[in-house]
Design a protein around this nucleic acid. Sequence first.
DNA 1: TTGAAAGCGGTACCAC
DNA 2: GTGGTACCGCTTTCAA
Lengths: 336, 336
Amino acid sequence: MKNLTISQIAELAGVSKTTVSRVLNNKDDIKGETRERILQVIRENNYRPNSAARTINNRSTRTIGLLIPYQADYVLSNPFYYDVIRGITVEADLNDYYTLLMYSQKDSYLKTVREKRIDGLLLISFGTQHIKLLQELLETDIPMISLAKVPGFSTVPTVSVDDFDGAKKAVSHLIEQGHRDIAVINGPQTLVGHAERIKGYRAVLESHGIPYREELVLEREISVENGHLAMKKLLGEQTFTAAFICCDLMAIGAIEAIRDSGLRVPEDISIVGYDNIPMSGHLSPALTTVDQFAYKKGRRATQALIAQMEGTSMRRSLEIKPELVIRGSTARRPRE
Amino acid sequence: MKNLTISQIAELAGVSKTTVSRVLNNKDDIKGETRERILQVIRENNYRPNSAARTINNRSTRTIGLLIPYQADYVLSNPFYYDVIRGITVEADLNDYYTLLMYSQKDSYLKTVREKRIDGLLLISFGTQHIKLLQELLETDIPMISLAKVPGFSTVPTVSVDDFDGAKKAVSHLIEQGHRDIAVINGPQTLVGHAERIKGYRAVLESHGIPYREELVLEREISVENGHLAMKKLLGEQTFTAAFICCDLMAIGAIEAIRDSGLRVPEDISIVGYDNIPMSGHLSPALTTVDQFAYKKGRRATQALIAQMEGTSMRRSLEIKPELVIRGSTARRPRE
DNA sequence: TTGAAAGCGGTACCAC
DNA sequence: GTGGTACCGCTTTCAA
């Protein structure tokens, strides 16, 4: 069953295509009777206007690009980002926008923008290594929102989470439990969010008069396996009673490493994660972690982008406050 | 920096737009010198042809729709599907196709197809409840591939996994370890794949003369939490030494329930999962599971769809053979 | 080897 | 209220 064209619908309804176009676009200068007749024909034929033809006239695709840098391969395997993506698609759908997944080995992002396949862009996990790309994207004048703070680009509106605050909450909780030797497994500092978490960690230590010890802090690409390996290394070389892991995914690996070494969580080592991915509450022990409100973040970012595209609001950044979720993976420091 | 149009490029190069169009489409009836001059102008201006204008002429969007039924919300929270999606976008990108994420609360899938926003469709997790939608999609004549077998629709080419075989491998392994009382936590039978797994389970039991006991088999929506709850229920009501869990995500919850009840995996209860999600190897104990080759499945399905769209191959279905991955969550049946 | 002109399926301006 | 027509940015005959 082929889709008809506006001319064919016009002919079937005995009107001009201008009139059909009017009902398609809900104009009101049209007789109710005529509108009904046309709507009837449209329904009978399951007619839908061709999107490319509309795009070329309206200069709008009603499509949002979801840009995931190819190097950020952890994005498409981390449940945290899937909540973000779900938030994005839900919000887009509610506003009749489409979502184009841009994850390209060929780095074809600029091409996609220049071909005008999308009206706006959501930047996922942009870090210092993507500054050149960001610069080029800015030159195209396409509306965009970054879901991560980008160093030195105050021109790009951002919907982000206050990671400095999140880290402070996590580490403060550990210190309140009596811990003083707190290890850290962090993601790459090329991402501002991860750099902020280290700053938060240091700030809390300092305010409690605990010296910062570099050897307790490891930085790794995000993956369950790297969480495992990093914790193994820490256990072999350092002494500590708690660890702050930059994301729940790595915490899963880290906890396994602790178990492998014959220690227990939280009896011997307390663990605080970050993200609060859906499975965190169902691990054993259930993970104490920092909730980033991923889904909400996705929706908010999309709202902000749509507002920007439709000119209904200024370019403005937004920061979400993370919250500590206390569960079973943290406990008071064991007595020596 | 606004994008120019083909006419402006033509003018700058001192040729007609027909000629520019020729170089854009790599036609060969053009003087090398002219081509070079035009390419130079194109490069200087970062020119890219408007995709909507091209689409309207070529009747091709170079976009693949990734259809996730809104009810199938577990798709966007199951790492198994993440690998599938990654495979799809990678393969699409390699072939210069775009990926449109179709996850709509408004059930706007048909609208999207009729508006001709996509050239082909990849159906994720279609079950009996989506037969009406599938029927309507078929009427639009759009090329499509389902990544799950759909009951009674041999007309839809499918790239799937032989779940009957996968379940057989999983359950056979348990039986070889001496287990006879094998519980099952399965996903909804509305999905053919899950129905097949039960069949495989029954087939193996039968071939070993073990009677099928309905009360050992639970069916739940896929989630970590449901895995936990289902296992808790089983532990409270039944006696068994092993369990086959239809997916790793639920196995994570199930293992936690076993631990909560004071039993050990695999010493007291052996667990076989299904999917082999990336974290399965990093849990404690590492999960014995059935690898579905999710990434490969995504790539193959996309290849098949592209072949169908470009008419380079017949509509043909493909079945991937799953493999058992033996790790630490299974052991010999404990002596009574 | 190149260009003029028609046409793809819509929208929008201007008459009537 | 409704229709004729130009036009959006590109591809594709057809002629030169």
